[in-house]
């Protein structure tokens, strides 16, 4: 594979995490414009741990997820009362505050005679862990897709378990969830925290591939994109948001003549798609139909076997 393809694939993988993060919140009925904050916190926290304090990436990743997850759970707790647009705007305000504070913050330590650490809008550079350990982009590719595979597996298990249906119930009708004995606030905080940790994975990989990250990488564009991915791809399954990423980063990147007009094409695509499929391509209905069809075939087969 040539380097460009690997880069594109790495981007798709990295964005998938934040797309899944926004998707998880969408399932619970919350529109977040602020998941980029947790992607950014994941990137900065893991980058600082490896670059400034010499931790291994494999230790920094879970730590960054915890930091980011706790921050997200705290924000989720604070914004519990807010619904719909109010929640969306509050998350946006939080994310912009985080980004601007990163712009305003400088904290550097000396590593091998060089200052390392967040340096305002100059960003956090010298995240050399991948380089020092001779990781090629293709190695990151395996790491990203391995992690993504695990995350997707967990998502599928969640969707099959009651946890998934509880989250969907809260998202569809909060009052109904309450009258069915679901402790809504507790689950909301849990979901916010999980979503924060998920976004942090993407950020951590991003930081270690790029080796330098800037506060501007985590602006509102990233957040709204990640939200759009779930809505384009569909709210029926965790594959939906990834399909959304594929469409944007994969397809549009691949088609030469779109270059330079990408936002116009993508924007138009999203707008038109949402007119015809307001819950995305792989929405609940299509997924349900697919599932019933698959089950029908399987049942037909077992019945056939029993008959013979």
């Amino acid at each position: 594979m040539d380097d460009h393809v690997i880069t594109v694939l790495n981007n798709i993988g990295g964005f998938s995490f934040i797309a899944l993060s926004a998707y998880l919140l969408l399932l619970s009925g919350e529109i977040s414009f602020g998941q980029q904050a947790f992607y950014g916190i994941g990137a900065y926290a893991s980058g600082m741990m490896t670059a400034m304090f010499g931790l291994s990436f494999w230790l920094a990743l879970p730590l960054a997820m915890i930091v980011s997850g706790l921050a997200a759970a705290a924000v989720g707790g604070l914004t519990l009362r807010l619904r719909g647009l109010y929640f969306a705007i509050a998350t946006l305000a939080f994310a912009e505050t985080v980004r601007l504070i990163l712009v305003a913050t400088t904290w550097q330590v000396e590593v091998d005679g060089e200052p390392v650490g967040p340096n305002g809008s100059e960003g956090l550079g010298n995240i050399r862990w991948g380089f020092d350990n001779e990781y090629e982009p293709v190695d990151f590719l395996w790491m990203i897709y391995g992690t993504l595979g695990i995350v997707l597996l967990l998502f599928f298990l969640m969707e099959r378990s009651r946890l998934g249906s509880i989250i969907r119930t809260i998202g569809a009708d909060r009052l109904l969830a309450e009258t069915q004995g679901i402790a809504v606030t507790r689950y909301k905080i849990l979901v916010a925290g999980l979503a924060g940790a998920l976004a942090a994975i993407g950020g951590a990989f991003y930081a270690h591939i790029q080796t330098t990250v800037y506060p501007e990488n985590f602006d509102v564009m990233l957040g709204v994109h990640s939200l759009a991915y779930g809505l384009i791809g569909g709210l029926g399954t965790a594959v939906g948001p990834i399909l959304g990423v594929l469409l944007d980063v994969g397809f549009l990147e691949a088609v030469e003549w779109i270059q330079g007009y990408r936002m116009i094409v993508f924007g138009g695509l999203v707008a038109v798609l949402l007119i015809f499929m307001p819950r995305g391509i792989l929405d609940e209905r299509r997924i349900h139909r697919l599932r019933t069809a698959l089950r029908g075939r399987r049942q037909a087969r077992t019945h056939g076997a029993a008959g013979a």
Partner: peptide, 10 residues
């Protein structure tokens, strides 16, 4: 207050 995009079973 049914959840319209879930099956009767679900």
């Amino acid at each position: 207050r049914l959840i319209p995009h879930m099956s009767a079973f679900d």
